[in-house]
Amino acid sequence: MFKKIVSFLNQDVANLTKENQGTETVSEISTNIHNQALAEIKVLSTIAKTLDNPNYKNPDFSFYLKIKSFFATNKEQYQGLQNSAELLALAVKAQANFLKIEQTELRYRSTKQQEYYQFVIDFLGEKFAEDKSNEASEGGAIVTKKKDNSKYSKEEFKQQIRAKLEEVKLTIKTEQGKQALEDYTESLEALAAEKEIGLKLLYLFKKFNLTDFSILRTISDMVIYLQDKNMQNMKAMQDLVVKNEEIFLKVGKIIGIPKTKENPETYGRILQYLALSKKHESSIQQFTKMMDVMKQWKNFYKTITDIREQYPPSQYQQPDEFKQEIPGLSLYQTYGEYLSIFK
C-alpha cells in the first residue's frame, strides 16, 4: 500500500512538473541552431578569457576607456572631436613616413622627380578633394560634399604610383636618385596601409601648405614627456598646449578642429588621449583583440537568448541545453559597454 501511495505521488509530481514546463516541443531546427551557437560561444569565451588581463582594472586604463568612450559618444566637450583625435594619433604614429616624404621632396628636385611628386598629389586630390561645385544648403549653412566618383582604393593607389615610379626611374641616371624614389614610394605605401586616413592626412598637409612635418615629432616628444606624469591632470595638459600654441594651431587645420573649438581645452583633451594611448599601447592592442572576440560572442549570445525567449519553459519542454549557463556572460557584463567604441 505504501509503495502504491509513493508511486501515485511521484506520478503527480511528474505531471505537475510537465504542466509547469509546458507540453509543446521545441523544433529540431531551433534546437540545432541553439546548440551550434552554444558550442561556438564556448570556444569564443575561452579565447576571450585568455585575453582578459588584470591591467584592464587599472584605474589609469579605466580612465583611458572612459576618455575614449567620451570621444566616441560625442559627450559634451568631446563632441565632434573623435575624428580629429584619431587623425592626430595616426599622424604622430606615422611621423617617420611623413618625415621621409618631406626630406625626399626637399633633397631630390629633378624635373622628373618633381613630376612624380606632383603625380602623387594630383591622385590624392582627385580622391580626397572636396567638390566646390557640389555645395548644398542645409539649415542655412553651406555644406561641401565629396565627389561621388572619388572612392578611395588602396590597391588602385599602389598600382598607379608603382607604374609611374617605373616610368620615372627610367629617366634617372643615378642609383641614389632611384633609391630615394623607391624609399619615398614605400613611405607612401605605408601610409596607404592605414586605411583611408594615412593618405588623407598627407593630402591635407599638402592642401594647407604645411610641409614642416617636424611638428609631428614635437607633438610626439610631448606625448613621451607625459608618460610618467599624472595624465588625469587636465590643467597640466592645457599648460603644455599653451606653451606650444603655434604648433597646435597649425596642426588644428589639418585634423579639422572647428574654429569655435580652437582653444587649450580642446587640444588638451586630444593630447591627453594621445598620451594615454601611448602609455597603454600594449594593453590596448590586447583589449582590442578581446573586443573583436566579444563582438562575435555577442552575435551568438543573441541567437541563444532569442531562441530561449521564443520557446519559454511555461509553454515548451526545453532541452537540457536551454538551461545551461552561457559561457563568457560575466566578461560581457564587465566590458560590454566598450564594444561599440572599438572598431
Rank of each mutant, 00 (worst) to 15 (best):
residue 7 S to M: 01
residue 14 A to S: 08
residue 14 A to M: 01
residue 16 L to V: 02
residue 18 K to R: 11
residue 19 E to M: 01
residue 22 G to W: 01
residue 25 T to N: 05
residue 27 S to N: 09
residue 28 E to K: 15
residue 34 H to V: 10
residue 35 N to L: 02
residue 38 L to T: 00
residue 39 A to H: 05
residue 40 E to A: 09
residue 42 K to S: 14
residue 45 S to R: 06
residue 45 S to L: 10
residue 48 A to Y: 05
residue 52 D to Q: 04
residue 52 D to Y: 10
residue 61 F to V: 08
residue 67 I to T: 13
residue 69 S to L: 14
residue 70 F to L: 10
residue 72 A to L: 10
residue 73 T to Q: 10
residue 75 K to L: 13
residue 77 Q to E: 14
residue 79 Q to Y: 06
residue 80 G to K: 08
residue 82 Q to A: 12
residue 86 E to H: 03
residue 92 V to A: 09
residue 96 A to Q: 11
residue 96 A to P: 02
residue 97 N to T: 04
residue 110 S to C: 01
residue 110 S to L: 07
residue 112 K to M: 13
residue 115 E to Y: 07
residue 118 Q to L: 12
residue 121 I to V: 11
residue 122 D to T: 12
residue 125 G to C: 06
residue 140 G to S: 06
residue 141 A to I: 09
residue 141 A to Q: 13
residue 144 T to Q: 09
residue 147 K to N: 13
residue 148 D to A: 11
residue 149 N to L: 03
residue 151 K to N: 13
residue 154 K to G: 04
residue 158 K to I: 09
residue 159 Q to T: 14
residue 165 L to Y: 08
residue 168 V to S: 06
residue 172 I to H: 05
residue 174 T to G: 05
residue 176 Q to P: 00
residue 177 G to W: 04
residue 177 G to M: 01
residue 184 Y to Q: 12
residue 189 E to L: 14
residue 196 E to R: 09
residue 199 L to F: 11
residue 201 L to T: 06
residue 206 K to V: 11
residue 207 K to R: 15
residue 209 N to S: 09
residue 209 N to P: 01
residue 215 I to T: 13
residue 216 L to I: 12
residue 217 R to T: 13
residue 220 S to V: 03
residue 220 S to R: 00
residue 223 V to W: 12
residue 224 I to H: 06
residue 230 N to D: 15
residue 234 M to S: 12
residue 239 D to K: 07
residue 242 V to M: 14
residue 243 K to A: 15
residue 248 F to G: 07
residue 249 L to C: 07
residue 252 G to M: 05
residue 254 I to F: 05
residue 254 I to V: 15
residue 256 G to V: 02
residue 257 I to W: 14
residue 265 E to A: 15
residue 268 G to R: 09
residue 269 R to Q: 13
residue 272 Q to M: 13
residue 279 K to E: 03
residue 281 E to W: 00
residue 283 S to I: 05
residue 286 Q to Y: 03
residue 291 M to A: 09
residue 293 V to P: 02
residue 294 M to I: 10
residue 299 N to M: 09
residue 302 K to S: 04
residue 303 T to P: 08
residue 304 I to N: 12
residue 307 I to R: 11
residue 309 E to A: 12
residue 311 Y to T: 00
residue 312 P to Y: 04
residue 323 K to H: 11
residue 323 K to P: 00
residue 327 P to L: 04
residue 332 Y to F: 15
residue 335 Y to P: 08
residue 337 E to S: 13
residue 343 K to L: 05
